[in-house]
Write a protein that binds this DNA or RNA. Structure first.
Lengths: 215, 215
DNA sequence: CGACGATTTGAATAGGATCAATGGGAGTGG
DNA sequence: CCACTCCCATTGATCCTATTCAAATCGTCG
């Protein structure tokens, strides 16, 4: 977008640092701000009845609840930091203003929104088409790839969060790791060694239309 | 959008009628067209390993695979008609062109995309936060509301499709209907009578952030 | 060292899936 | 108009996956 429009927009924004485990937004509230994660990590989650589920994780540089802002609607998800995080808050009104005023910004927003959409669709396919063990296996392969594919990886979140993200209980995640041991998966805390990626891939059957970085 | 831009765009489009159960697109293919359902009904589904899952249903007037078109990427879902359907096909290039050229069109597209996004998020919450019986109960209440809330409703698709949409097997759907019988749910083919919506709502605990028409 | 939370393990249960078999229309052809 | 066939839906039985509840273990931080 134009330098000038960018400056105007940024003057309305707040850059804040939040401690870990702080609630940023609650589902059902009106979308007052667009959030951009600059540093740290944010967990998107949802509640219903008395259950809670992690919907996704946002890492730098990523936005969340863009759709609610554009539609001037209420948030569908809650969000909380899962690390000390630096976050940019842009008032919704100003986002929509810039959206009207600057065609380049519009295009960028649409690309981001389309990417978010495809991300959720992939997550939904993941959940509907795979068992818990398959989801874990594919997730490990993804982290492995994203961290350089050197035979080991670090789990980016604690196991409780990872379990919820994968749609299972912590107990079940623990058992899923045991199930994967014969496929060369050795776990030590948050450090995971993949001793037989071939075997793991045979089990996981990764699919670029679910696990792909983008496209 | 402007009358003129609309005419230009429509001149590139094809309006076609397809028979039922015809495959329109296949996941993984490049997004050559944007699809708009004018009449009939289209099922979005996905495959992986040897499993298949219904991802959503599109009814008039609705679009599908908008995100793939805007990103010039491959389809993440397949689509097939589930009735004889009249469908508008607009070449992706022309959609993107109009998207650049006409600000009103851009806004409309963004609203549609944001709505689709929120739709998938709701579906995802539905699946992660509810049991199969709860999903069925809430779906029945939704159809009931959308069809006038007069104590009965018609299932809009066959039960096999409904089951897949709700993330269960046909057998399990059949049993879920039996589970709901004590809550006043009487099924006769595709006709369903709700004799005790209060009781059904107590069980279903509908949530506007999952089942809401929009917002 | 002690306490707390996170993780793991075990046992029992529940929810759903699978396999097999039966019933029930809708459509077809005689 | 009726018999036949096919596919969908239902039911039963069993198996498997995943959740729940309980307890033990591990690690980390004061």
């Amino acid at each position: 977008m134009s330098e000038q429009n960018f400056e105007t927009l940024m003057q309305t924004a707040y850059l804040q640092t939040f401690p870990t485990q702080l609630d940023l937004i609650t589902e059902g509230d009106p979308a007052d701000f667009l959030y951009v994660v600059i540093e740290g990590c944010v967990e998107l989650y949802a509640r219903s009845n008395s259950r809670e589920a992690t919907m996704g994780m946002v890492q730098p540089v990523g936005t969340f609840i863009l759709a609610a802002v554009l539609k001037d609607a209420v948030y569908l998800m809650s969000a909380r930091t899962c690390q000390k995080s630096k976050i940019l808050l842009i008032p919704s009104d100003n986002v929509r203003e810039a959206f009207q005023a600057d065609a380049s910004f519009t295009r960028a927003i649409v690309q981001e929104l389309a990417s978010c959409y495809r991300g959720v669709v992939k997550e939904h396919k993941n959940l509907k088409l795979r068992t818990a063990v398959e989801r874990l296996a594919n997730r490990l392969l993804r982290y492995h790839r994203d961290q350089g594919a050197n035979g080991s990886l670090d789990l980016p979140y604690d196991k409780r969060t990872l379990a919820s993200l994968l749609g299972m209980t912590p107990e079940n995640l623990s058992r899923a790791f045991n199930t994967l041991k014969p496929y060369g998966v050795d776990v030590d805390g948050s450090f995971v060694r993949l001793n037989d990626t071939k075997a793991l891939e045979t089990l996981a059957k990764p699919n670029p239309l679910i696990d792909g970085r983008d496209q």
